[in-house]
Design a protein around this nucleic acid. Sequence first.
DNA 1: ACGGGGACTGAACACGCGTTTAGCATACTG
DNA 2: CAGTATGCTAAACGCGTGTTCAGTCCCCGT
Lengths: 211, 211
Amino acid sequence: MGSAPDPNDLTARAAIRNAALRLFADRGADAVTVREIATQAGVSPALILHHFGSKDGLRAEVDAYAAQAFDAIFEAMPADELVEFLAGGAAGGSLAEAFARGFPHGSPLPAYLGRLFLTHDPAGAALFGRWYAMTRRLFDLMVEAGAARPTDDPAVRAAFFLVNDLALILLRTQIATVIGSDPLEPDGVERWGREAGKVYAEGAFQAPAKE
Amino acid sequence: MGSAPDPNDLTARAAIRNAALRLFADRGADAVTVREIATQAGVSPALILHHFGSKDGLRAEVDAYAAQAFDAIFEAMPADELVEFLAGGAAGGSLAEAFARGFPHGSPLPAYLGRLFLTHDPAGAALFGRWYAMTRRLFDLMVEAGAARPTDDPAVRAAFFLVNDLALILLRTQIATVIGSDPLEPDGVERWGREAGKVYAEGAFQAPAKE
DNA sequence: ACGGGGACTGAACACGCGTTTAGCATACTG
DNA sequence: CAGTATGCTAAACGCGTGTTCAGTCCCCGT
C-alpha cells in the first residue's frame, strides 16, 4: 500500500515477508509454520509476532505485497501499446509474457498467483476481474482497428483468451515437463508464443482431405 | 482400485470417503480436520481411524478414488471417436466437455483436480502426462486425416490445447462470474464450445484494415 | 553519562490436532 | 446358548501449533 520506498525495508521485517511469500507460494499458508518462516528468515519466531501481530497479520501483509506486484505487471501493459503490438502481427503481449518479463527467474509470485485463484481468495477474484476487463477492452479496440474478427459472444472470447493465458502460469511446471522448456523462461516463451500466435491467427483445424 | 462393486460401499466407510472428498476438494486436505470429516459424515472421529488407519490413509484412499473417476473420464474419450467428431466440424470433444458430461452438478471432482495440479501432487503429474499423451496422439491422427494443419512444434501445440482445456476446469468459478454461465454446465459448455471452436478453426486475429 | 525505547529472544502456555485405548453393542458361528 | 469378530464410540494422551511474556541488547537523543 505504501508508495514511498519504505526505509525499514531490507530489514528483518522484509526478510520475514520474503521468506513467508516464498513458503506460502510453495506450500500454502496453512501448511507453513511460524517457526519455519522464522528459521528461513534467520530470526526468532517471536519476532514475527512482534512485527506482524499474528500469523494472519503476516498473511495479510504478504497478500498485499503480492497484489501490489501483480498490479505493477498490470500497469506495465497499457492497452494502446498492446493493440499496436498485436496488430503488428506478433502474438506476444500476453499476460504470461508480461509475467516472464516482470518476474525474475525463480520468483515465487507465479506460484502465489495460482494459490490465489485456487483458494477462491477474494483478492484473486478481484485480480481476475480487473484482468478480464482489460482483456475485454483490448478486444474491443482490436475489433475497432480491424485487427480481430468480431464475434457475437465477446464476453466468452475475452474469457477464453484470458484463461488460456493464465493456464500457462498455473500449469507451468506440468507444461515444462512435457515440452522440455519452462514456458515462463525465454526459450519457452518463444516456443509457446509462436504456436499460440499461429492458432490464434489462422486456427489449427481444417476440413478433412477429400478422397 | 477394486473393480468389483464393493459390497461394503454405501456404508459408513463410503460416507466418510465422500465427505472427505468434498471437504478436501473445497479447502485442501491439510485444512480439514478429522473431527470435521466425522461430523459431516455423521460418525465419530475414531471410526475414521478405525477404517482408514490414519488421516493419511484416508487421504490416499480419496486420492485413489478420484484418480479412478478421472480415468473413467479418460477412457470414455476414445481417440478414434474423437477424430471423427472433430473432423466432422464440431469443436466439442474437449476434456472440459467430458467433465461436464461425466460429473453431475455439484460434484467435488473438478475442484479436486485443481488441487491435484496446484499442489504438484505426483498423481496430478501422472494424470497430466497421460492426458498430454492422449492429446498428442489425437493431433497426430488429425493431421494424418487432414483435419488439423501440421505444425513444426507439435509438443507445444498439444500442450497448448490441453492446458486451455484444463484452464476451463481450474478457473471455473472465475469464468462463471464474468461470463454469467458456469462453463461446466450445459449452457456454459455450449457458449464456450462455440467460441473456442471458432478460434481453433479459423483464428481470431486478422491483418488490420488498410487505409 | 544516562535514560528510554525499539528490535529481538528463550521459555513457557493454552489449545486443537491426529491418534490410542478400552469398552459397548450387535450379529454371525459352532 | 457361549464365543467371537465387527462396527462403532467416549475419553484421554502426546505433540506441535500460534501466541504471550519477561527480559536482554543496543542505538540514539539529551
